[in-house]
Amino acid sequence: MNLAKGFRGGERQTALLIETLASRGNLQQTLVCRKDSPLREVLRDVSGLRFVSANHQLAGHGSVRKADTVHAHEAKAVHWAFLHHGLKGVPYIVTRRVDTPVKDRPSNRWCYRRAVRRVAISRVIMRELEMRGWGGVDLIPSAFSGLPTCEEATRRFHDTFAGKFLVGHAGALVDRHKGQRVLLEAARLLETRLPELQFVFLGDGEDREMLERESADQPNVAWLGFKENIGDYLAGLDMFAFPSRNEGLGSVLLDVMNVGVPIVATDVGGIPDIVQDNKTGLLVPKDDAIALSDALTRLYRSESLRAQLSQSAKQQLDRFSPEAMADSYISIYESIFRQEP
């Protein structure tokens, strides 16, 4: 179940799980999603996957064949799963992906308490759910996507900024969440100090026009928009900056680590589950452009530190693989099939 309108990190992880489970060949899957969901296009070639349309929580229940379990991947899907349980008695799993606390209201209490299992993708989400007292919580982190890369495309991208050291950012252009303004302020601080640094923003979102307008006088900033072949661009970066103000986990960091790019990120939400300060990346306080610029400067000036952090980061990726994520969920599914607590 995923009733989201767009396609962001949670939807990418939903798709990744479906694709990985399909490769096992021993599960029948149905995806309940909106009629206009981008997930339909992303997953159109997945063998045996059936789609059911539901633009809201009351729709689609009659179109779902008898299921052994329902897996809800976002907030509206949780309420859909609760209703489906009431209508057809199907047990359901909830995966919580955002680090904002679930509102303590009757509908949420009912939905989470009736779930047969509750899953958090990071320790901070796990703690928040446990504090609610709505039942036990499993920890299953998101996975890296294994994004395809093309050496020629990556080379062309890097050559566009010949002679520059590329500091990249990728994510929805929503400043209240991703903190792009903090990175823009850091870029201003470094504009004359380190003019060889070029800040490259990948992605789109509601704040794009505003952010572009505010940075129009910054020659060291480039806005490249949304890219289907994001792996080609991540692989061409020299450093990655992730100044989020809040973050459930930050799965894009796993994709950055997978292509060997060192990271500076904020110490918020689930990010410390991925980025261990001075071991697999550098962490800075949120909303602190000076600390961010200092960390970027430190990383830029030390090639050995960049290599050390990148190598250590890549060594931890086995526990964030799609196979590891699928194995954990299959274990939960099988416990439900066996009617274990």
Rank of each mutant, 00 (worst) to 15 (best):
M1K: 02
N2H: 08
N2G: 09
N2C: 15
K5W: 09
G6N: 14
G6M: 10
G10L: 12
E11Q: 15
R12T: 13
Q13E: 13
Q13K: 10
L31H: 00
R34H: 02
V42Y: 06
D45I: 06
V46L: 05
G48M: 11
L49H: 08
S53I: 10
Q57S: 13
A59N: 01
G62F: 12
V70G: 01
V70D: 00
E74W: 02
A77S: 14
A81V: 06
L83R: 10
H84R: 05
H85L: 15
I93D: 07
R96Y: 02
T100A: 15
T100D: 12
T100V: 11
V102C: 02
V102A: 05
S107M: 14
R109E: 12
R117G: 03
R118M: 12
R123G: 11
V124Y: 00
M126D: 08
E130F: 02
M131E: 14
G133D: 10
S142H: 05
F144G: 03
T149R: 14
T149G: 12
E152Q: 10
A153Y: 08
A162L: 11
F165N: 02
L166G: 04
G168Q: 03
H169D: 05
D175W: 00
D175G: 02
R176S: 13
K178Y: 08
K178A: 07
K178S: 10
Q180E: 13
V182A: 08
V182C: 12
V182E: 06
L183P: 02
T192F: 14
T192I: 13
L197R: 04
F201M: 07
G203Y: 00
G205Q: 10
E206K: 08
R208Q: 13
E209D: 14
M210W: 08
E212C: 15
E212K: 12
E214W: 01
D217S: 15
A222P: 00
W223K: 07
L224K: 02
E228W: 09
I230M: 14
A235K: 07
A241D: 08
L249A: 09
L249N: 04
G250T: 03
V252N: 00
V252M: 07
D255Y: 04
V259N: 04
V261E: 04
P262E: 11
A265Y: 01
T266Y: 06
G269W: 03
G270Q: 05
G270N: 05
P272T: 09
D273F: 02
D273Q: 06
I274M: 03
V275W: 00
Q276V: 12
K279E: 12
G281V: 01
L282E: 05
A291G: 13
L296E: 06
T297D: 03
E303F: 12
S304E: 10
L305H: 00
L309E: 06
S312A: 15
L317T: 01
D318K: 09
E323P: 00
D327S: 14
Q339C: 13
P341E: 07
